[in-house]
Design a protein around this nucleic acid. Structure first.
Length: 104
DNA sequence: GACCTGACTCAAC
DNA sequence: AGTTGAGCCAGGT
């Protein structure tokens, strides 16, 4: 049984990305690497960003996803707005970077 | 159907 | 400390 691979968990990955991002509590942020790890590969961070960038569903608080070094990263709608939203949610910023304490 | 790019990250130089 | 290269996944051209 088991027909050898035959298929890739492509859909799984993006689905997990949305699920993980949706689970981010308000006032908190997560790094792409964190989401990637949650999806199975810590190096799939690119796929995570790509999934959000191409899908950017309103159901997913993609603004809570930031770089690993604390930079707000990018935002398909408006990177500046992303920072603003995070501040509104209560995320602490340190020198234009998200405080590591707010990272999951 | 193959190649490249993209909201990334880590390690080495 | 800043720059460069390599690694991963998915979608678009």
């Amino acid at each position: 049984m088991l027909k050898k691979s035959s298929k890739k968990p492509t859909i799984f990955f993006c689905e997990k990305v949305y699920d993980a991002v949706k689970k981010i509590p308000r006032g908190r942020v997560a790094t792409y690497a964190y989401i990637a790890v949650r999806c199975g590969n810590s190096r799939a961070c690119r796929a995570v960003g790509n999934a959000l960038n191409k899908n950017r569903s309103k159901d997913v608080p993609c603004h809570r996803v930031i770089h690993a070094d604390g930079s707000p990263g990018g935002y398909a709608w408006d990177s500046a707005k992303k920072v603003k939203i995070l501040k509104e949610e209560g995320v602490r910023f340190q020198d234009n970077k998200i405080d590591s304490l707010c990272m999951l």
